[in-house]
Amino acid sequence: MLRKFSEFRSYSDNLRLGSITAFSAGMVNVISVIAFFAFTSNVTGHYAILAQEISKGNWYQAAVVLLWVSLFLGGSFVSNLIVIHSSSLLGRYLSHAIPISMEILCLLSVGLYMQHYYTQTLQETEMLVGIMLFAMGIQNGLTASISNFSVKTTHLTGLTTDLGILFSMFTKKKYRNDINLVKRAKLLIIIASMYMLGGVISGYLYINIGYKTFYIVCCVLVGIILYDFYHISLLKLNLRKQNKANSLSQKEIYNIGNS
């Protein structure tokens, strides 16, 4: 999921990454709506609210929303900055895993804060929403960046538009037979479904276990990192075995040559 970049990624790479990250984004968004009355995985509504608050002269609220939007932007900026600047130094996997780790840290800190310190003041709420928006900015920036903008998982506006276009295209036989368009539609439907599923599950969990839902989201994200770690370790192990076998056969050739 994380070790390949841009056009080197396969359809199944994007499918796995898109579905799991959409699941976590759906979870985060629903928790934030229930707990803080603010959306954290999308910013379209925040732009509209920002304009509304400015027009009403509510500078405090406008500044809060501007801060939130900037933090989402900042998250996406930091995420892509890490991807494009550190991949030559750290390798593809690590440079893609760092933004996910940062996202985990953000969500974990929100969960821990809610567990130990949260007194439900407005400033705390605004700060926690800001951290969650930053985390979602990181995730969206990462998935969009490494999938060459074909996977965006924290909001569904563009996805729904694309689906509408694709469905209208499928009214013509030549597009229905286009395997790439069918695959694209499947990918988008799976992302939307996983986002919804994540939302439903986290809504249910939050009502029953509260802030601990954040730890479950973190586990889902850790799963993304570990999935590729496992595959890389497996690949390295196979490579080592292969090298060992090669060196053994070379030794045999050498021994035969000497005898």
Partner: peptide, 11 residues
């Protein structure tokens, strides 16, 4: 009472 969101919700 608590204020939520950007201060637009009174709970």
């Amino acid at each position: 009472w608590t204020a939520k969101g950007r201060g637009h919700i009174l709970e």
